[in-house]
Design a protein around this nucleic acid. Sequence first.
DNA 1: CGCAGGCTTGACGCTGATCAAGGGCTGTGG
DNA 2: CCACAGCCCTTGATCAGCGTCAAGCCTGCG
Lengths: 243, 243
Amino acid sequence: MTPSIVNASPNASLRYCEIGRCLLRVARVSCNFTHQSVCSIPGFSLRYECQPHEILFRENDPSENLFVLRRGLIKLTTVSIDGHAQIVGLAVPGQLVGFETKSKKARRFTAETVTPVTVCRLRNGDMLRVLKQNPPVAMAVIELVNHELLEAQQFIRMLRKRSAEKRVAWFLLSLASHAAPGATIPLALSRREIAELLGLTVETVSRLMSSFRRSGLIDAPRGGLRIRQAERLQACVNKPERH
Amino acid sequence: MTPSIVNASPNASLRYCEIGRCLLRVARVSCNFTHQSVCSIPGFSLRYECQPHEILFRENDPSENLFVLRRGLIKLTTVSIDGHAQIVGLAVPGQLVGFETKSKKARRFTAETVTPVTVCRLRNGDMLRVLKQNPPVAMAVIELVNHELLEAQQFIRMLRKRSAEKRVAWFLLSLASHAAPGATIPLALSRREIAELLGLTVETVSRLMSSFRRSGLIDAPRGGLRIRQAERLQACVNKPERH
DNA sequence: CGCAGGCTTGACGCTGATCAAGGGCTGTGG
DNA sequence: CCACAGCCCTTGATCAGCGTCAAGCCTGCG
């Protein structure tokens, strides 16, 4: 079955969402901004609850909406020349997904939920209008985008640190960092998806996770993950340098 | 000899710089914004001409200033645990270098010129004030940062495409894309720096550039570079897919 | 002249991709 | 109910790309 598209089937529970609580609170910004000045546009922002494997938007579609991710995990993929899907990144709560300064521009990737997700949907055009009229919101967006840029740069540094072991350890830790320590968290991504994200192969990821499991660093129950010795995993990321 | 620090030795020719021409024109934004509203702060922005190997700021210093790069190339480095410098990225004209939403924050990298460079220097605090008061400038900054984010994501995709040959070909093309086609451009980075940037070793980069030279794809005179057959280089980046 | 540092080239070995086989789980249809 | 197909995951065997080590060349500089 092909996943549903949110734009086409807004069947989930939805209600109007105040940008003050959605965008700004997620961005952890405190500013003297008045709620009404932003939300004067009726239907400005809609809140959705999505199931896993729903498509928020597809590559090459026009960039009509943007989404503020409040809960859950979204994967961003493109299909490469050989017709094979390729993960280009993950979005975590607090991130803007699909924001474009030109709303006519084609999407550069497909956005698909991998866990149950809460998002707020806005029209890119409305967003741009608000940004022009509302400096505090613009500041919040600058902080958000800047923060994403920093994370991308960290990811780049990680990818250059060539060892596969470090990549997998890093990935597991960053997954767990969004959850309570010691808890068993759902491992929403398949081995194949992890491999694509880290630039490895399924076999290598599988071997390394088995190795971590045998060494007692993690538990890997069906579709789940529990970090048992975060320090040793972290040491695995940091210690052995190259060159 | 250690490179000079711009903050400490503003000996280059400098003059006041209008942000309207500096930030906004570089950002290629047209908006109905008045020049005076931004430049009302005396000494708001200073234009510098820098020599190669000058330090704009150092890792861990407080983020006092930001720079708008108008001309030239700047490399961003951190020193890793073993005390060895590691390139984290390059800045090209039009980019903001060292922008922070919290001006107390420590720099996350060192910024050093690699070519003759023209930059505009602003205090981060002044910049934030302007952003709060001047939506068009905020919009321009959002576009700039968003654009950088896109480039970082492209770079990530390139890094995952594992072949060393593709990385080097991609790098040469992206260097040349900022210059006239067919021209001999200065290759400001050493083999070592290229290798660090691409996550390879000096030897591999050297071998591949020799190979490209022998195949007639490029000329590599001392400290220079000329693309002879951009199409074949591009084909080298695109054609052979993995997985 | 001698030394240092950047670049090139060669020989070798390790890491991780590739190829292959098998087990477990799920859904589907007889 | 079972049989079977398909997918995901795991593990093993082999191979090759690139890192590592080493040597030599060239340029610049003291």
